[in-house]
Design a protein around this nucleic acid. Structure first.
Lengths: 249, 249
DNA sequence: CGTCGTCTTGAAACTTCTCAAACCAAGTGG
DNA sequence: CCACTTGGTTTGAGAAGTTTCAAGACGACG
């Protein structure tokens, strides 16, 4: 049974660096050569911890560098001028955050731990150092930020679809990202609340509940509070454009 | 009266390059030093033309480089798996497009001219050349892409608000971007259709019509087909969170 | 064992959509 | 020059999906 709280890394005998971190093919080093990873490893601060609810950085605070999650998950939260919260994204181990601070050098989002997280930090001034000698790194960061951009466009596309399709897509999206990162794709714990899921998907948390219930009654998933099990992935995928809540009542 | 069709640049006596282009402080060169701009200028292909409805690049096609609009406006369009169109963004002169092709090296959007456009093209392979000698450029591109990312998050925030707020915000957003680029901020032509506006904002084109009508009856704007005039900018801004369509019927 | 926060469920209310029809402006061709 | 076509826009009315409000159930925890 996979659990986002369980770190796959670290032994007590050997200090973890970028060279031997088992997230290397997901994290920043992906796409860099051995020498570049060595240079990167020297500049990274490791083993930073945040407990559930604590912020890794705050909206409005100056950009201090990029952050790579090593274990645990987090949410990116933005505030509009009226104080309404928007859960921009949920981030999983091996994923990079901080791009929301690059354009203006002030963060537009807060990054908040959804459970205990362990992360690496690559300071901003050292990024500039690095990029002079390793053009691969700057290209890599550009690619990653454009990848985030693509994801946000996908989110907007999703926001045009029905509530059920959003929830189905959300479950499948998390599943796929966990799979890529070596966790079980069919059974996992979602550390965020229904409220946070609803906020992220642009639907009321009551609607999230109703649809999770609907999916269970259709034998697509099994859910016990935050623990999810995908039973019929194919049908869950087919839920796209096929059904509607009212037609199934 | 400002019109997006009217190019502010080019004399017939002097060829336009990045050094003397009057978009330099908006376009790619912004933030580069004289020498870097010189290097950039040599690699840019200028005076590319597309007529209304023609694509600058197609969704799915390989990434060939970045594009800077010099005159005219364009839309970025994405397709979901069911063939539904999403107007991701409208782009104005001086703005950079192409980031949708960087992550995967395949464009996820089509860029389509909304009227005759003239644009510059910076080929992909030459970007790599450039970034080795001019780390400023790669940092610049990263900033721009993160800026796009911020904009998309703003769009998602907006998608949580009422139809009127979306339309008000849309008009003010275009107005502000035109102002920054030296055009009239109060009187302008919107080259896109009501259908395209509605698609971009996530509302039916009929709703766009209704709200434009509402704004006119409230003396916030004057509209004659595609020609817009902002009468009461302040009140238009206050429309945020203040009124609702049904309460004004 | 009670309390607090989260989750679930029901029913009414509301916003926006969909469909249908009419309107308008700008061509096009007889 | 006028009827016709075409594409975009406007308007109305009913339908649909989601939210809101309210209340009850559950689960973790002191």
């Amino acid at each position: 049974m996979s659990n986002l709280n369980v770190s796959k890394v670290s032994t007590i005998y050997q200090p973890v660096t970028c060279e031997n971190c088992n997230l290397d093919n997901l994290c920043i080093p992906k796409g860099l050569d051995r020498q570049e990873i060595g240079a990167l490893a020297l500049l990274v601060s490791r083993d930073n911890i945040r407990q559930k609810g604590e912020a890794i950085y705050h909206s409005g605070s100056p950009f201090r560098g990029m952050v790579a999650l090593r274990s645990g998950s987090a949410k990116l939260v933005s505030l509009d001028q009226n104080g309404n919260e928007l859960v921009v994204a949920f981030m999983l181990p091996g994923e990079i955050i901080g791009f929301d601070g690059v354009a203006t050098q002030l963060h537009t989002c807060s990054a908040v731990a959804l459970e205990t997280v362990n992360y690496c930090h690559l300071p901003a001034h050292k990024i500039e150092q690095l990029t002079i000698n390793t053009p691969n790194l700057s290209h890599l960061l550009l690619q990653r930020s454009c990848n985030e951009l693509d994801s946000q466009v996908q989110m907007i596309l999703l926001s045009r679809r029905s509530a059920e399709e959003r929830v189905a897509s959300f479950i499948l999206n998390i599943s796929e990202r966990l799979r890529v990162r070596g966790y079980s794709e069919l059974e996992f714990r979602l550390s965020m609340s229904r409220e946070e899921i609803g906020n992220h998907l642009g639907i009321a948390h009551e609607t999230v509940s109703r649809i999770i219930h609907l999916f269970q009654s259709r034998k697509l998933i099994e859910v016990k509070s935050k623990q999810f099990k995908i039973i019929d992935k194919k049908e869950l995928f087919n839920f796209y454009t096929t059904y509607s809540l009212n037609s199934l009542k």
